[in-house]
């Protein structure tokens, strides 16, 4: 049948990727790369959302967006750790190469709930990447918030992600930035200790604070516990979960935890909803 103007078309099948081209590839750490993708059309997203990225001929993976939502002209930015075949292929795409993009998907960081409150951003390792769009948004609207603290932990000093930006943010006088590493040799003069040890050191009013937490799941559990110990209620904490996502739209069930789909209902969850699920070891 010939395609006519009247023929119904599937304009945006959520399972069909749009095609973008790599504009820039930057090595952040020994195994972490940031890709800037050029899309034909504007690509709006909210902080904390993710895309399904396709390395053609290899496969597809869920990758958080790590760029600034207010600066779409910079391109679509993702930070990828080279840990498996798909992420390896994605992180080794060169400028000019094609990449498939489905998204943006998921519920992101609810920035608006933090207005007039203190803000604590607790990041571990690569967890700083999905939090970076939130940090951009909070800093661009700095007057809307009370105290802002960024607490960031990594494995060693050489694993500190976005180090130039951390130094840039630290130069601001309106953000309380604490960085620590789990272990170090003598040539590091910064803090050593797990990221949870930073929570008691940060200045914020626990009863009027919104906390955003992202990192490995164990780190988030302990991080949330440290925040709770300081008096931040679960209802004021938001955590971003990572699960093996496939469809990205809540159909396949690969990322299901209990009754929720991480791709559709998350990846960002309020902790009073998430905590009961995280405590079930079978999930």
């Amino acid at each position: 049948m010939a395609l006519t103007a009247e023929t119904p078309r599937i304009v945006a099948d959520p399972m069909v990727p749009r095609v973008g081209r790599i504009r820039k590839r930057v090595r952040e750490l020994s195994d972490v790369w940031t890709l800037t993708v050029e899309m034909d059309e504007p690509f709006a997203f909210a902080p904390g959302q993710f895309n399904m990225l396709t390395a053609f001929g290899v496969g597809e993976a869920a990758i958080s967006i790590s760029g600034d939502p207010a600066r779409p002209g910079e391109g679509l930015i993702h930070t990828i750790r080279d840990v498996g075949p798909v992420s390896h292929a994605l992180s080794h795409l060169e400028p000019g190469d094609y990449i498939g993009v489905r998204g943006p998907y998921g519920a992101g960081w609810p920035v608006e709930v933090a207005e007039h409150c203190d803000v604590v951003i607790l990041a571990g390792g690569l967890g700083l990447a999905p939090l970076r769009p939130l940090i951009y948004e909070v800093l661009s609207g700095r007057k809307k918030y009370g105290k802002v603290a960024l607490l960031f932990g990594a494995r060693t000093p050489t694993d500190l992600l976005f180090r130039p930006e951390l130094e840039q943010w630290r130069r601001r006088l309106d953000v309380d930035i604490h960085v620590t590493v789990d272990t170090s040799t003598e040539d590091w003069y910064g803090n050593v200790g797990v990221v949870t040890t930073l929570v008691p050191r940060a200045a914020f009013d626990p009863q009027h604070t919104i906390a955003y937490v992202c990192g490995p799941e164990i780190m988030m559990r302990f991080g949330a516990a440290a925040l709770r110990d300081k008096g931040v209620p679960d209802e004021a904490m938001y955590l971003s979960m990572e699960r093996n996502m496939k469809c990205g739209i809540g159909l396949c069930g690969h990322c299901q935890i209990g009754t929720v789909f991480v791709c559709r209902d998350g990846p960002v969850f309020r902790n009073d909803k998430l905590r009961p699920l995280m405590s079930v070891k079978e999930l």
Binding site: V83, G124, L126, R155, D159, D182, T183, T196, I218, M219
Partner: peptide, 19 residues
């Protein structure tokens, strides 16, 4: 106790490749 917990977390190496 906090330092013991922190040491346990360090041993877990939560940012390692298998985290």
């Amino acid at each position: 106790i906090q330092r013991l917990q922190a040491s346990r977390l360090q041993i877990l190496d939560v940012y390692g490749a298998h985290s």
